[in-house]
């Protein structure tokens, strides 16, 4: 097997009538498909094969985390449960549109849960954006390379997050885990609004810098 075939071979995908229906690059029958996590593969199976066992595995892993995430936002316990279930129903319905080259399963499920929550808390029922939309996916590399690239990105984000100075990390955690706007963070923490904004800017710059390391490392 040459190096290329160690990754899942996307050229084979085009010969597969099932996968032809969508340009998802999901011909990954090999569970060790490079660049894809276990959850990415499960999600592809749900979308491609309507695989209920794979869905149950995703549910067991992600539903309790969505619930936990929502509880941290101060959402009412029974509403958290409801939103978590509704989000997982949406995962099933929309799994076909999941593209492992563009986002990991956890990112994709995060955006679904985010949208579901906004949907429930708001009266106006506005359709929310789709992460697989080209407007949110400006990258142009080949599908297989992208899957590997973006998983490395997720690891880098995790690493960069651990290395943020405390006062910057605090801004990020308040934003995600308490769903505070930057203005609310300032109002409630007593840190001046300007300082909050500059800390957010510094934190995002650090995260961006980790993603913009010298070209050529991940590119073939």
């Amino acid at each position: 097997m040459d190096i290329k075939n160690e990754n899942f071979d996307f050229e084979l995908v085009t010969d597969d009538p099932v996968s032809l229906t969508r340009d998802m690059g999901t011909g990954c029958d090999n569970d060790n498909a490079k660049g894809m996590s276990r959850w990415d593969i499960m999600l592809v199976r749900v979308g491609r094969d309507r695989d209920q066992a794979a869905f149950a595995a995703l549910f067991d892993y992600f539903a309790p985390r969505i619930k936990s995430f929502l509880l941290r936002l101060g959402t009412d316990m029974s509403l958290c449960e409801e939103i978590a279930q509704e989000a997982m129903i949406m995962v099933w319905r929309r799994a076909e549109t999941y593209n492992p080259a563009q986002s990991g399963a956890s990112t994709w499920i995060f955006t679904i849960a985010r949208n579901k929550r906004i949907d429930r808390l708001r009266r106006e029922n506005r359709p929310l954006p789709d992460l697989s939309d080209p407007a949110f996916a400006p990258e142009t590399a080949e599908t297989g390379e992208k899957a590997i690239f973006r998983q490395q990105e997720e690891e880098k984000i995790r690493h960069a997050l651990k290395n943020l100075p405390d006062e910057q990390a605090k801004m990020i955690f308040s934003a995600y885990y308490e769903e505070k706007s930057h203005r609310e963070i300032a109002d409630e923490s007593g840190v001046p609004l300007g300082t909050v904004k500059s800390r957010i800017r510094l934190a995002l710059n650090r995260l961006r810098a980790h993603l913009d390391e010298p070209e050529g490392i991940w590119k073939p």
């Binding site: 985390r65 399963a105 956890s106 499920i109 995060f110």
Partner: peptide, 9 residues
Amino acid sequence: MKLGGVLLE
């Protein structure tokens, strides 16, 4: 959004 996914996991 990736950061959100990481924090969710």
